Simulated scan of single mutants.
Amino acid sequence: MKIKEIKIGKVSIPLKKPFKTALRQVNSAEDIIVKVIADTGEVGFGNAPPTAVITGDSQDSIIAAIRDTIGPKLIGMEIDNLEAIMTTLDTSMLHNSSAKAALDIAVYDLFGKLYGLPLYKLFGGYRNLMETDLTISLNQPEEMVRDSLEAVAEGYKALKIKVGGDTALDIKRVQAIRAAVGSNVKIRLDANQGWGPKEAVRTIRKFEDQGLDIELIEQPVKAHDFAGLKYVTDHVETDIMADEAAFGTYEVFQLLSMSACDLINIKLMKAGGLHNAIKIAHFAETMGIECMMGCMLESKVGITAAASIAAGKKIVTRADLDAAVLLAADPVVGGVSFCQDQLIIPDSPGLGIVDIIGWQEVK
């Protein structure tokens, strides 16, 4: 099976509610979805949501990178020579991790279809169910409480609460949510780089002193501030997770070498795809650091790919793979399914995806 053709398309999917963080507000998911077509006619699906404030990648840059630089280098390559394909992806151009991830996912989808193997089994087959949390966007405390109670009523047992930018208000947000949902719901906080190191320590200590029982704090400081992240990790009891700082394999290696965090959030769009995400999981496992599998605002294509690693690898102990649930419509036929807070990974070959409704090709 060889790569014969690569087609690039778009889907635009409204969100149920605006998605708000300390970095941005989004009202719809604008997803780039690629089709890597083999000489057998089989199709592999991959996707890339533009997340310029984190990855630096826009829709136009993703399309151009795939169409003009990376994609042409893959034509004619054998699908079962993953090592050569992934080496080509990594060395074709610097950065552009989202474009690389889209092609990587599609190639792995074809690889699974070639050998009749679901990707979660290729990645280890540890389980075929995974619990995900649900993200609560950054708003006034009363609105966040309403959203949290709705999530708990829908069966979610873990909430990821967006904070950052105003620590006094952040404390009120968390106090109100904990009082509303009770003690049996896990609360994870994501500051999206919204605090300074000392500010983070002061704030997290207040959470601890008030007994708010926060499971973890995600990326409290700027992504480039590894020393600041380590300072926070070393000065609080609560587990600290690296997200934007844990961009790719090199950054994760640095963080682990410094003991700068307690947990790693792996995202395919940062890592450049599944092959590098697996390396990150293995780095973390070697160091005894548990991982979360996270996502950007992407369609079920990327969520299914990320869930395949989360299900396959034991070191991935948490999932934040709720993006498809936040969308008002689901254009993806096949792939992962949801039952309350459970991700159900399909046993179909590859990603188990058969079509994308409303996919519009771009040239």
Rank of each mutant, 00 (worst) to 15 (best):
K198W: 12
L134R: 06
I187N: 05
Y156C: 12
R178H: 06
T233D: 01
G228N: 00
S137G: 00
F226K: 13
I187T: 06
K162V: 07
K157V: 10
N139S: 13
D234T: 01
T203N: 14
K206N: 02
L216E: 02
L138V: 02
K162C: 02
G182D: 08
L229S: 06
D147Y: 14
E215R: 09
Y231T: 03
N139A: 14
G228H: 02
L149N: 07
D190S: 10
T233K: 08
R205D: 08
E218F: 09
E154H: 14
E143K: 15
H224S: 15
V163G: 02
N192C: 09
A200L: 12
K160L: 06
E154D: 15
D133W: 05
T233C: 08
I187K: 07
Q210F: 10
I171C: 07
D190F: 01
A227Y: 11
G194I: 02
N192S: 15
R202G: 12
R205N: 11
N139I: 00
G164T: 08
R188D: 03
Y156I: 11
I136C: 10
E143A: 13
H235R: 14
I204G: 00
E237L: 12
G228Q: 04
K162E: 07
R146S: 13
V152L: 11
D234K: 10
E208T: 14
R178F: 05
T203K: 09
V232N: 07
A158N: 13
S137R: 05
A180W: 00
L229I: 00
E131L: 15
I171W: 11
A151K: 08
H235T: 11
G196R: 13
P141Q: 08
I204R: 06
P141K: 05
A180E: 02
L189S: 09
K222E: 11
G165E: 06
H235Q: 11
A180M: 05
D166E: 03
P220R: 05
F207A: 07
